[in-house]
Computed example of a mutant assay.
Amino acid sequence: MSNLLNLVGRILIALIFFGGAIQKVGDPAPVTGMITGIGLPEWLIWPVAAFNLIAAAALVTGPGIRIWALMLAAYCIFTSYFHWDLRADPWQVTIMVKNWAIAGGLLILASQDTDGVSTGGRRAAKTGFQPDQK
């Protein structure tokens, strides 16, 4: 049961990053504005979108769940800077705190023994959880 809960939790967290990738590709203007607003080049949106997509997929499927969780936690903490805007939009502070909470969940995930909770390959075989093989 704990492996199933671990997988469901990873899927729910990954949805945030899948959605972020889709938003960045579908409408890059808001994020490029944030990126250029701190002096970084706007082309960074494309590697960031790719990172969101790849990291989300790896968080769900493994292997390397621990390292992906750590990288995503660091990403959440770093990107929370973009939402520190008390005077213009207090709602942004809520988004910033949500980023910290997501980072906290990812750190908890990284601290767990993730052997046997991958959805593919040899690790899944250890737990008895096997994806459909056709």
Rank of each mutant, 00 (worst) to 15 (best):
I95S: 04
W91D: 01
K24C: 04
G121R: 14
S2P: 12
D132L: 13
A74M: 05
A21S: 15
G121A: 08
G39A: 09
A57I: 15
L106W: 13
A58Y: 00
A56R: 02
A103W: 03
I45W: 02
G116Y: 03
L70V: 12
R87S: 11
Q23P: 00
W91I: 10
L70W: 09
G120C: 13
A73Q: 01
D89V: 02
I45E: 02
N6K: 06
D85K: 03
N52E: 10
M71E: 02
F78W: 03
P47T: 15
Q92L: 04
D132H: 15
A101C: 14
Q112E: 14
T114L: 06
Q23T: 12
R10V: 12
S80E: 08
T114G: 09
M96T: 12
I13Q: 09
T119P: 05
V25G: 11
A73G: 08
W68S: 03
R87M: 12
R123I: 07
L106N: 03
L7G: 09
A69F: 01
A14Y: 07
L12Q: 12
W43R: 01
L7W: 08
I77N: 03
S80V: 12
T79I: 10
I102L: 09
L5M: 13
T127I: 09
A58V: 10
I77C: 00
